[in-house]
Write a protein that binds this DNA or RNA. Structure first.
Lengths: 242, 242
DNA sequence: ATTGACTCTCACGTAACGTAATACCATATA
DNA sequence: TATATGGTATTACGTTACGTGAGAGTCAAT
């Protein structure tokens, strides 16, 4: 069989066959006197094997190993690959979920602007918040907002105390021991009084402090630049804890 | 923020940031007097947008378009991407099916070849069968063959009855309720009398019916085109059961 | 003999960075 | 103050699995 036919039957291009020949994955005798590649039935069988593994996203190098070494543990390779595929499937499912939500949001966004036109409803979203929501999730933003509002007088007092303490050291290096020790108070306070924060969520919250104008303004009431300082300290805190 | 910190927080490498700068995806001012890249909050927000799309497997070129053109139809892009992801998911499901069968084949295959050695069992393989084996696994072929041979007279009768019933409706739509109800008999018969078939294995067997000449010839003895009809009905059956 | 459809071998292009190599810069410590 | 450490920058080649011509030869049919 000539390359052309083989390619058609296998659903690949001639270039692919050339390439496989070139890298020694599927070496083929050129018997045609004119140098044409002549694929025997055996070659085609081997090609099918190759395509089988390729369809499972094996890199060609590994396929070569599999084909060359008779003691290669095919079974283990296959089981490993199955695992990878399952992970990939999960990843795709997550992406589909995300993309679905985003599409809904996008659609809802259009409705919103219609609503706005007719009801004079002003939705005070700034781009930063939108982005923050996309990246860190509505959960983080909303919980941060709402839980603060639900606080009792006592905890408000405690919170303000921490803010004041942080403000008093806001010109120091956020990475210094003092800063880190104080930001840890903030971390503990949030976990005890507000909601459970993972290290990552805590870092995300820190980023929010400079991303979201409202956070920044609120925080900076205790001292100019406090939001920036806290943000950096919180991110550093997360780094240390990992 | 310097590149290092940005990279750490964003979970990417500095090289990636350089690259994004290089291709103009995330151009950043180098204000540090030493040529250091200085990422503003806006830059970081943009990076987050970029990473959002990248996580959805958008190519960078398209991301650039999305970011540059405010009139770019984000919604359509997202829906298109969703479609692609769904196709990819299907592909992965097919690959998982194939790999699962191959693993079973491999497991059973080793035992088989040992048996073969000691029992002097010579298996007459034709290229079509080879293909079928590679594609659907020794298990399917062998079990289909051998179990049929081991069947008693009674079960043979039962099997033939189902074949005849199927042949009588083979010109109907394989997806019709009648067809599906009858093919279910076949499914139950196989599970009770031959061997346990997963839905996937059952589908694989269905494909075998048109892939493997011998199967096709055998089945078509009960009626021209029966193999084709059964194959389609079996695959449909599997789809419905998932 | 010419045409059209194939074949071959270079050899560069692609995407999204990884990986040195080389040089400059900033800070902490001896 | 010299140096070690660890950051920054640019330049440029390496990677994977081919795609895409370019230029030249080959084959079968007209």
């Amino acid at each position: 069989m000539l390359a052309n036919e083989v390619a058609k039957v296998a659903g690949i291009t001639v270039r692919t066959l050339h390439y496989y020949d070139e890298i020694g994955l599927l070496s083929v005798t050129k018997s045609n006197e004119a140098g044409y590649r002549n694929y025997t039935d055996q070659d085609i069988a081997k090609l099918q094997q190759i395509l089988f593994f390729r369809a499972l996203d094996f890199p060609l190098k590994q396929i070569k190993q599999i084909m060359e070494q008779p003691d290669y543990d095919r079974l283990k390779a296959l089981e490993w690959q199955e695992e990878l595929l399952n992970k990939e499937k999960k990843r795709i499912d997550e992406m589909l979920l995300t993309i679905h939500q985003t599409i809904e949001q996008e659609k809802a966004g259009v409705k919103m602007s219609n609503k706005e036109r007719f009801e004079g409803f002003a939705f005070d979203s700034n781009p930063h918040e939108e982005e923050a929501r996309e990246r860190w999730g509505d959960q983080a933003v909303d919980e941060a907002n709402k839980n603060v509002m639900r606080m009792t007088q006592d905890t408000q007092e405690e919170m303000n105390a921490i803010y004041r303490e942080l403000a008093s050291i806001r010109h120091k290096d956020p990475k210094s021991t003092t800063s880190q020790r104080t930001i840890e108070k903030w971390y503990r306070f949030l976990n005890e009084q507000v909601t459970t924060y993972s290290i990552e969520a805590f870092q995300g919250l820190g980023m929010l402090y400079i991303q979201d104008e409202r956070f920044q303004k609120n925080i900076d009431q205790f001292g100019e630049g406090l939001a920036q300082f806290m943000s950096e300290a919180m991110i550093e805190f997360g780094q240390n804890k990992k």
